[in-house]
Design a protein around this nucleic acid. Structure first.
Lengths: 202, 202
DNA sequence: CTCAATAGTTGCATGCCGTGCAAGATTTCT
DNA sequence: AGAAATCTTGCACGGCATGCAACTATTGAG
């Protein structure tokens, strides 16, 4: 990777970190783009070369779209062949942790505090989940081989992302918690939803 | 209702209609608050006495929170005692149509065209569904008598709103369609979700 | 190494958004 | 009719976001 690219990534991260830090300190309303840019030692104008809005600097990179490899396996019916289990694999790989839970734990905690402190960020957060939902919808349609007019993959994707969103929100993010634990929580959640809407239950 | 109140409602509706019409004509980017206000014969400043943002003028009143009476019946275990059926009653009463489907059909069609033309409105739309979701969550918790720490009502509310959102999006809104038809669509959707996430299915 | 090409940064000008404030107009209540 | 409450409006202001052109830094070829 060349010098230019490294500098760009450094600037980007500096802007993100400055935005998060200042927002947690003073609240989003009392942080201007000018201040964020100054904190990262770039001009105001440069900030907008990286992010279209202040909120984008806070929410970018989250949640991630599913990894291409994971997606391919899912579309081809893997890895286990059981729909819910494979769905959970995709969800943990994309939204929860693309490269191990530990690596993203700090970032997830920061974001959590962020949206708790600043409810204005909720719409943007929901929109990002919605984007993942649409990708997931396509993957489900491919896996199940339904016709493009069939809207059921969208329905399943929507509810699956609702489960995921809820799980992320309620996740305790303890030190020792691994991906396996998250899988278990998701499995319970899906089971509970299935039971709640199954024909014969209350 | 006094003269003052009537004038306020008239102004509000005039602003909404102007906003929707101009946005459908030219696109949201090419409509300023000044123009909307002029179209409704009020000052720019007055616009902001009614709506905090341009988007709010487009999306307000949708979706509606559940009617207080409907909510009370649901919390007390009614009207049928079957969870899914009663849930559907609440959902149709709040989001789909608070006072008959026909009355809101035109408004729903307009909104549909609006968000199709202007994807920037999606986050705001999602946020509004999210608000209803939180109210629904409380109602479910009250009905089932779960303790406040129990997060399952939130989970059920989230998935239920996902189903509702999907149903609204895919609704065909034909002329003859009534509330009963919407109920049937919702029932099918819930059944399908229940089957997809039930322990033994694919 | 040098120099041209490419890509990124910056300042400037601009327009719109959204809010606080105070003065003026209108409705309401007595 | 007149005081009180409420709504509208104009004004000023600061921040957001974009286009443009000049400037600076990296890259790559000879």
């Amino acid at each position: 990777m060349g010098l230019r690219e490294r500098k760009k990534q450094a600037t980007r991260r500096a802007l993100q970190e400055a935005a998060v830090r200042l927002t947690l300190e003073r609240g989003l309303e009392h942080v201007t783009v000018e201040e964020i840019a100054a904190e990262a030692d770039v001009s105001t104008r440069t900030f907008f070369n990286y992010f279209a809005t202040k909120e984008e600097a806070l929410l970018s990179d989250v949640p991630t779209a599913p990894d291409e490899e994971v997606r391919r396996v899912f579309v081809e019916g893997g890895p286990t062949g059981v729909f819910v289990d494979d769905l959970i694999t995709v969800l943990t790989a994309s939204v929860i942790s693309s490269e191990g839970l530990a690596a993203h734990r700090d970032a997830m905690l920061l974001r959590k505090r962020l949206v708790e402190r600043e409810p204005q960020l909720v719409p943007g957060m929901l929109a990002r989940f919605h984007n993942v939902e649409q990708e997931l919808s396509r993957a489900i349609a491919e896996r199940t081989g339904t016709s493009p007019e069939d809207e059921r993959p969208q329905l399943v994707a929507a509810t699956a992302m609702a489960v995921t969103r809820h799980t992320v929100k309620c996740l305790h993010l303890r030190e020792g918690e691994g991906v396996a634990d998250v899988r278990a929580v998701l499995r319970d959640a899906f089971r509970h939803v299935g039971a709640a809407y199954a024909p014969s239950d209350d």
